[in-house]
Simulated scan of single mutants.
Amino acid sequence: MAPVRFGIPLYEYQALDVMGPLDVIAGYEENNLIPKGLHENGLELEFYHISDTTHKSKPTNLELENLDVVATVTTAECPPIDYLLFGGPLPSYKLSEEMNTFIQDRVAKGEIKTIFTTCTGAAVLAQTGLLDGKRATVHMGIIDLARQMYPAVNWVQKTDKGNWVIDGNIWTANGACTGMDMFAHWLIQQCGLELAKYQFWTLNYAPRGIDGQLLSL
């Protein structure tokens, strides 16, 4: 089976927005304690942290945690990818023209199965125009600002109870931890409940549903 490739544009996002969801889906791969019969349901995952061509060797500082992250590939080097994940930076963050073009080109080629955003990552994706006309959520602290900045997006109302929104092949979560729950839902879909339950157990993690209530697994 071909590996499943995630591309993560690298900028000053909150670390948990990206690391949390990736940990939810990644931990089972190399664990020899997985019960027999579950390996065949797993995915071979590859993660590509993508920078502009001029910034590959320059660490990006995730200022909130004072954590330096170095890209694994540039936009020019990145192989075909299946999924994109956008973490959440400050609302003032502006996507570079190079990264914007890279994202739009990869989507136009039809290689991207699903785009995920967590927290304010939806405001980053909105800069590409790919959220225009789509229903989406973002951190509720900036929902009014997002509505002003990107009026072509069908942003949820503050009264909406769902912690994430699925519109076609775009999944948007309203926070870092709800992004983990969203990825837990995706993992169950992709690999089945039994393998997903094992993965949640390895993390001592209890995922919630879209309504914020603990799932009964």
Score class of each variant (00 low, 15 high):
1 M>I: 11
2 A>P: 15
2 A>L: 13
3 P>L: 10
4 V>E: 08
4 V>M: 14
5 R>C: 12
9 P>N: 08
9 P>C: 07
11 Y>D: 03
13 Y>Q: 06
14 Q>K: 08
15 A>W: 07
16 L>Q: 01
19 M>A: 12
20 G>T: 06
23 D>I: 00
30 E>I: 12
31 N>R: 13
37 G>D: 03
37 G>T: 05
38 L>R: 08
39 H>I: 11
40 E>C: 12
48 Y>S: 10
57 S>I: 10
63 E>C: 12
63 E>R: 14
66 N>V: 12
69 V>Q: 04
71 A>E: 03
72 T>W: 02
76 A>W: 00
77 E>I: 08
82 D>P: 01
83 Y>W: 04
89 P>M: 07
89 P>N: 05
89 P>E: 05
91 P>Q: 07
93 Y>H: 14
94 K>C: 11
95 L>P: 01
97 E>V: 12
98 E>S: 09
100 N>R: 13
101 T>Y: 00
101 T>I: 09
102 F>I: 09
111 E>M: 01
112 I>E: 04
114 T>I: 14
117 T>A: 10
120 T>W: 05
120 T>D: 04
121 G>P: 02
128 T>S: 09
130 L>D: 06
131 L>V: 04
132 D>Y: 01
135 R>A: 14
136 A>D: 03
144 D>N: 13
146 A>E: 03
148 Q>A: 12
148 Q>Y: 02
152 A>R: 12
153 V>Q: 01
153 V>Y: 03
154 N>H: 13
160 D>T: 10
161 K>Q: 13
167 D>M: 10
168 G>R: 01
169 N>M: 08
176 A>C: 10
184 A>N: 08
189 Q>G: 14
191 C>I: 14
193 L>R: 12
194 E>H: 09
198 Y>F: 15
203 L>W: 03
205 Y>W: 13
208 R>C: 15
210 I>T: 09
216 S>K: 15
217 L>S: 08
